[in-house]
């Protein structure tokens, strides 16, 4: 079932064609509408505070994206726990030991990147499904988090990182949080890596025969996701000022939902940073609208669940994959 089966698409409606090529358009529309609703419901919309609460989810979505783009069901379940681990290491281990400054950022990225690389290496060496490998890693990292931080760890209020949730010399801190993964992704766009990544995600057999080092691309994709998760952990701890091992699983599901909503096909080879961020924005703004409308907390799982289902079904419909009949 390789490229040979690709259908002719001459008669495809223009809108669908556009959406298939630019999957993030749906999330863009949703973001604009929801933002408008938010501004109406909440005339004094605090931009910096809202951006600060948005940043962890956005970076988590960015972290889930590379491995999904790399294809073959490359969903990284361990993103959530790795975020928490990063927060715990920062608040509980680096900061108290004089490493709480800017140098913490590369350390946390390396930590997350290393875990991601281990995921990727296991996937390619043992030829296991990424979901199983990263799910195992999810349990392992949660266990490590529980060991490292049996009780929540507080971040000192005067730590520089807290300004990531405020402002840095008048400049909104959250924008810097968002800028780091965006800049990294843009830098990678100047190299061959991103093209290789999309080629591998689109059709790994083709990429392999064309001479691309498929395994290396996959490992780097997982490592990149891990590194982003490291950043996301820092951003989260900057916002909530505690690192709590019991919240290890909070971001995995919702980050994947954001990526899916942003038009990144879970089959791989399409989508990207713009989609992930816009998907995250849509979800965040829905949350915000619900809060404004005073919908009780206990409803949230139902709403997230429904949104995720709708997002992936719509995504599958738009991606133009042949659906239905298998024979």
């Amino acid at each position: 079932m390789s490229a040979v089966a690709a259908p002719r698409r001459a008669g495809e409606p223009r809108l669908r064609r556009l959406l298939r090529r630019h999957g993030y358009l749906l999330a863009l529309g949703l973001t604009i509408v929801l933002l408008a609703v938010n501004l109406v419901l909440q005339p004094n919309f605090g931009w910096i505070a809202q951006l600060a609460s948005f940043a962890p989810l956005a970076v988590a979505a960015a972290a889930s994206m590379p491995s999904i783009v790399s294809g073959r069901g490359g969903i990284d379940m361990s993103i959530g726990p790795v975020m928490t681990l990063s927060g715990i290491v920062f608040a509980g281990y680096l900061a108290p030991n004089g490493l709480g400054g800017l140098e913490a950022l590369p350390i946390l990225m390396l930590l997350g990147g290393a875990i991601g690389a281990v995921n990727g290496l296991i996937v390619i060496w043992l030829r296991l499904s990424p979901i199983v490998v990263t799910l195992a890693m999810y349990f392992i990292v949660i266990g490590i988090n529980l060991k490292l931080a049996p009780t929540p760890m507080r971040l000192a209020d005067d730590n520089w990182a807290t300004s990531l949730a405020g402002s840095i010399g008048g400049f909104p801190g959250p924008l810097i949080s968002l800028a780091i993964p965006v800049a990294l992704w843009a830098l990678l766009g100047l190299t061959a890596f991103r093209r290789n990544l999309y080629a591998v995600g689109g059709n790994d057999a083709t990429a392999f025969t064309a001479g691309i080092a498929v395994s290396a691309v996959r490992v780097v994709a997982f490592a990149l996701g891990g590194a982003f998760a490291g950043i996301a952990g820092l951003v989260l701890v900057a916002l909530v000022r505690t690192a709590d091992s019991s919240t290890s699983s909070a971001y995995t599901l919702i980050a994947i939902a954001a990526v899916a909503l942003g038009g990144t096909s879970l089959a791989g080879g399409a989508g990207g940073m713009t989609g992930a961020l816009l998907g995250a924005a849509s979800i965040f703004l829905v949350q915000s609208v619900l809060a404004d409308a005073q919908v009780p907390q206990t409803w949230l799982p139902a709403i997230y669940g429904a949104m995720l289902i709708v997002a992936v079904v719509v995504g599958a419909l738009l991606s133009g994959e042949r659906t239905g009949r298998r024979a």
Partner: peptide, 9 residues
């Protein structure tokens, strides 16, 4: 995952 969350919600 989504449906589990939905059912719980």
């Amino acid at each position: 995952l989504a449906m589990g969350s939905f059912a719980l919600g």
